[in-house]
Amino acid sequence: MKLLVAILVSALAITVSFAYDPSPLQDICVAVKDPHHAVFVNGRFCKDPKEVEAEDFFFPGFNVPRNTDNNDGSNVTNVNVDQIPGLNTLGISMVRIDFAPYGLNPPHTHPRATEILVVVEGELYVGFVTSNQLGNKLITKVLKAGDVFVFPIGLIHFQWNVGKTKAVAFAALSSQFPGVITISKSVFGSNPPINVDVLAKAFQVDAHVIKQLQKPFA
């Protein structure tokens, strides 16, 4: 009897260890019954290994400063599977973030990746907010050149240049295509717009305040 229980427990453990969904590489994937309408989960074919070359794993010019002349005063240069096809299935990518003085990489999330960031120039005030379950605690730190900070997967986070000079940071992310959801743009700039009354109730403000917040994204 003890042997039978042990076998059953082992079988259950093996079943549980393999019964999970892989991390998605897309925002949505609607199931279809007709295979002729199906697509690959990551939307990409794999090249014949015999035809692979160095260019499939290469991206130039990551050292070149980017233009930060915009409303946020920042510019994010992505190096994911779109830029380096060889990243497909490897579960990693990078970004370069350039900041003008007092430039901001506004609150956003990466639904598919944890981010680890290193500051190479300037001074950044960074932070993330924990989930509702943990009381939405704000975790912040002022980083200087050489400092490293981690933003856990899926949590809202930001980086703000608090210096009078430009700043530069590089980050690695634990997905070949992390995705990004900018909170203000998603909430106030959705297409079509979210009902004003819904947002007014959610943010507990008058409807005219919501309309003002939606205007820049119209």
Rank of each mutant, 00 (worst) to 15 (best):
V79C: 06
K50G: 11
S74W: 01
I156E: 06
P152V: 15
L12E: 08
Y102N: 13
V180C: 03
P107S: 06
Q83T: 05
K33I: 02
V187I: 15
P22C: 12
A200H: 02
L173C: 05
L138S: 13
S93A: 06
K50Y: 09
E55Y: 03
T114N: 06
N105E: 02
D56P: 10
F217G: 00
A100H: 03
P101I: 07
A202C: 14
V81I: 11
V76Q: 02
K2L: 13
D69T: 10
V129K: 11
L155C: 11
P106G: 14
F217R: 02
I92R: 04
K185V: 04
K164F: 02
V118R: 05
N136E: 10
S10N: 10
D34N: 15
I84H: 02
A202N: 14
V198M: 01
G146P: 09
K215H: 02
G86W: 01
A31Q: 09
A100K: 05
P152K: 14
F203R: 13
F57I: 12
D206V: 06
L117S: 04
N88Y: 08
T77L: 14
N67K: 14
R44T: 07
K185L: 07
S17H: 14
A207D: 07
P106Q: 10
Q159G: 00
V39E: 13
K137M: 08
H37R: 06
V180G: 00
L8R: 11
M94G: 01
A38T: 06
R66S: 15
A202K: 11
G122P: 04
Q159H: 04
N80T: 14
D98L: 03
N80C: 10
L138E: 12
F62P: 03
G135A: 10
L3R: 15
A207S: 13
V180T: 00
S184D: 12
I14H: 11
H36D: 14
S74T: 07
K201D: 13
D21I: 15
D147H: 11
F18Q: 15
S131A: 08
D147F: 09
I156F: 08
V119G: 02
V205C: 13
F158H: 03
V32K: 05
S131L: 06
G179W: 00
N132Y: 03
L12T: 12
D56C: 10
V148W: 12
H110E: 03
P65F: 02
I92M: 06
Q159W: 06
I84V: 06
R66A: 14
A218M: 02
A167P: 10
E51H: 11
D98A: 05
F18P: 10
P65A: 05
D56G: 09
E115W: 01
I97V: 09
T165A: 07
G103W: 00
K47E: 08
R112Q: 01
Q26L: 01
E51W: 07
E115C: 02
V150P: 01
E55Q: 11
F62C: 07
F203L: 11
C29A: 15
K166A: 05
D69A: 10
N80S: 13
V142D: 09
D56S: 08
S175Q: 02
V150Q: 07
G73V: 04
